[in-house]
Structures are given as structure tokens and as C-alpha cells.
Design a protein around this nucleic acid. Structure first.
Lengths: 195, 195
DNA sequence: GTCTATAGAGAGATAGAC
DNA sequence: GTCTATCTCTCTATAGAC
């Protein structure tokens, strides 16, 4: 017979983060109460404070972990031609984000609910990721293979376009992820290529 | 000497909407109290209910008004060549959105705080706007001037890219709006053009 | 039309028993 | 580690005076 009280730190901890992630993505950070998270996990509200000092830190850890996994998952290969490095980035970005819709959603929607210090930390990680794409675009521009007026703007334009996939793509929809990636790659490639 | 009580419906009404818009954009719908809005306007919380039946309707009216103004402001000209219609759309979209950062922000961030019926109404308006761009892309594809695998995806990709300008553009920054529009137009044009 | 006052619900976080 | 109970605060919305 299952206990209803006792030690469960190794399973409850992850469950708290999973429940918070899902509820924050669904209803928004401010609209989700600690009681709602606890209810999803199957504990009382007070028990959550064994796993996070407060609600703010819970959000910060979710966003930070997501950005760190993003940075860890993408490895550029500078020995490739710029166009191939760009193709790898596009493929990676769409796949990685399509796999984690909740993480991506709160990473864009809940930034303003971070304390100023926590916001700066997450922004720094995001900036690191953007810099990797900018380096690829700059290498192609330097080699004369790309025609880009301003690589920083092009970086932001491409990332906005690719991340937009998450607002509408659903597995089992009209198009497969491979088809989606193929079209986005075609558009991105043409948008930066020199005539 | 100014009265502190009395009739001010013609000035208080707009002030309520302006204050709500600014505060919702800054702090998020769920995080903004009716007291905070009232304080910004210079009245007590109870007085707000002369202008809106509730907080939800206040948000809905802001989003609805924005989408209706967007639809009213853009007029396509089907007598032009597809590439010129597209150029006009890109120019219009970036300018219109750059002028209304708060409206654009809440239109993307606060959709989930709408009631289901209100959400459907706003979504229908957004869909109308997307359809106008899709019609342009389709006309160019039909004429063989554009090379687009799927015009619906291309529509969403272009809009995501263009709307992304709002996340970083600031008047008085490194680049003028005209320079920004020039580069985005270059990228959009190339991304849909055939060989 | 605006005020003051308040009803009624729900929030984040903590204390102490087990 | 989890529970129950609770402190303290804030919220939306309404009622009735002016």
C-alpha cells in the first residue's frame, strides 16, 4: 500500500519542475498558484518549498536549464562551408524547439516575470546562442558567399522566423517536420545568399 | 480649481484604456490589478467599472481594437505586380507595428488570458490579416514570379520574421527604421523569389 | 461619475506536528 | 519530506453615499 507521506525527494523534485513547466506554459506564470502546482504533483502546497525557495526561483531554474541545454546541444563545425553550417543550424533549431514547445513558450512569454538579476542571466545565455548564428552568417559574408547588409539584424530575423514554427506546428498536422524544415531552409538559404 | 469628483467620462474612458494598455504590456495582464490601473488614471478602483464591465472585457477591447485598426490600415492593390504588392506589405507591416509596440506586445502575449469566445474573435481577425499576405504570395506563385513550396507556411514565416522587429527595434538606436525595412525587404524578397 | 467601504475569494510563504 | 493550519496580504467586483 502506497504511503501518502514520507521521503520522495528524488521523484518529487522532477515532478515539481515538470508540473510547473506545463502549468506555466498553459496558463502563464502569474496565473498559476503554488497550490495548483502542488495539486498537479500530488502534494500539499507547503511541501513545494522543500524544492524551491520561492515561485520566482522555480521559474528562473526552468528558463536557465532550457537555455543551457540549448547551448549544450548545438555544436557548430567551423570546418564546414558557411552554407552547410547554416543548414545545420536551421535543422537543429527547428528540431530542438519543436521537441520542447513548453520550454520555448515560457522562455519567450515569462521573461518579464523574472527579477532583474535573473532576467540578465537568462538574456546572457540567449545572447550566446544568437552569437553562434551571427558567427556563421559573418563567415559567409566574409567569404562572399552571403549577401547580408547587417549580420546582427539577419541573425534576429532568421531566429524569429525559425522560432515562429512553434506557434503553429503540431505533430500529426498537414506537414511533417521534415517538410517544414525543408521549406524553411529553402527560404533562409535564399534570403542570405548572394545573387 | 480642478474638481476631484464629478463627470469626466469623455476623458476618463480613453485614459483607462491607455493606462491598461501600458501596464498590461509592461507587467502582464495577470500581474496588473484594477487598483494599479485606477492609480495610473487618477481615480479609485471602483470608478473603472463605469467604463468596463470587468477586467477581461478591458483586455478584449484593447486587442480587438488593435486588430481592427490593423485591418483597416492595410489596403492591398491587386493591380500591382506581386513583387510590388509584397514590398508594400513588408513596408506597411514593419511601420505599423513599430508605431504600436505595446499593442503588438499584448496581442501576442495575452491571447491566452482571453476567454474562449473572445480568443476566437481575435483569432479570426488575425487570420484575416494573414490571408491578405497569403493572397499576395499565391498570386506571385501562380504567376511564376515566386518560388514557394507552401504559401501558408511562407505567410507565417514572413510574418514571424517581420513582427520580430518589435522585440529589438528602438527609435534612436543604431539603425533607422528605413534601414531596417530595407534589409528586411531584401531578405523577404530573396526568400520567395524564383531562381 | 466618483468616492469610501467592504464582501468574499485566493494568493505566497511559514510553523510545527508527525 | 509531507502534512495541516494559518498569517498576512492582495485581488475583483459590488453597494450605497454624494
Amino acid at each position: 500500500m502506497a504511503r501518502t507521506t514520507g521521503s520522495h525527494s528524488d521523484i518529487t523534485g522532477p515532478k515539481v519542475r515538470e508540473a510547473a513547466l506545463r502549468l506555466f506554459a498553459q496558463n502563464g506564470f502569474a496565473a498559476v498558484s503554488m497550490r495548483a502546482i502542488a495539486s498537479e504533483v500530488g502534494v500539499q502546497a507547503g511541501a513545494l518549498y522543500n524544492y524551491t525557495p520561492d515561485k520566482q526561483t522555480l521559474l528562473f531554474n526552468l528558463l536557465c536549464t532550457h537555455m543551457e541545454q540549448l547551448l549544450a546541444a548545438f555544436t557548430d563545425d567551423t570546418s564546414l562551408a558557411p552554407v552547410d553550417r547554416l543548414r545545420r543550424f536551421v535543422d537543429f533549431h527547428i528540431r530542438f524547439h519543436a521537441d520542447r514547445p513548453d520550454e520555448v513558450f515560457i522562455s519567450y512569454m515569462e521573461l518579464r516575470n523574472l527579477s532583474p538579476e535573473n532576467f540578465s542571466a537568462v538574456e546572457a545565455l540567449r545572447r550566446q546562442y544568437e552569437d553562434r548564428l551571427q558567427a556563421i552568417l559573418q563567415s559567409g559574408a566574409d567569404a562572399g558567399e552571403f549577401d547580408i547588409a547587417d549580420t546582427k539584424i539577419a541573425t534576429l530575423a532568421v531566429i524569429a522566423m525559425l522560432t515562429g514554427v512553434n506557434t503553429w506546428f503540431r505533430v500529426g498536422g498537414r506537414l511533417s517536420l521534415d517538410q517544414v524544415i525543408a521549406q524553411y531552409w529553402d527560404m533562409v538559404r535564399k534570403s542570405v545568399m548572394s545573387g
